[in-house]
Design a protein around this nucleic acid. Structure first.
Length: 112
DNA sequence: ATAATGACATACA
DNA sequence: ATGTATGCCATTA
């Protein structure tokens, strides 16, 4: 078994994302202290399919609010479908109210 | 151990 | 604003 410690960190944070909110890979990486490893966060998401409990990877987008990982889901529409189902407005693979729906772990999880 | 890849981010033209 | 280029960190081959 590989050291999924880092992945576990990512999963744990992503799991704390409340419904109707989204965050960016960089924000998660920043919260973990490895803000440079935003790519690794995305990589961890790819392995999230083998993680349990499953993580709401659909709530994780890039800094532009773009659904870059939708092509990695079971179905392309699945990601935006989930987001739309939680109140997230998605237009052209991008989150419209991204600024409103953005959820920063380093802030939200930092409130005592 | 080295090289290549990747669901990102930032900088520059 | 858009496209190209480079950097970063962890995983896989």
């Amino acid at each position: 078994m590989a050291e999924e410690n880092f992945f576990d960190r990512v999963y744990e944070v992503v799991r704390q994302i409340p419904a109707g909110r989204v965050t960016s890979y960089g924000a998660i990486a920043n919260y973990l202290g490895t803000k440079r490893s935003a790519r690794v966060v995305g990589y961890a998401m790819g392995a999230s399919g083998a993680a349990y409990p499953p993580v709401p990877a659909h709530r994780v987008v890039n800094s532009q609010g773009l659904l870059t990982g939708k092509f990695h889901f079971a179905s392309f529409d699945l990601m935006e479908q989930m987001l739309a189902s939680e109140g997230i407005r998605v237009e052209d693979n991008k989150i419209r109210n991204f600024k409103e729906a953005f959820w920063d772990p380093s802030i939200e999880l930092s409130r005592d």
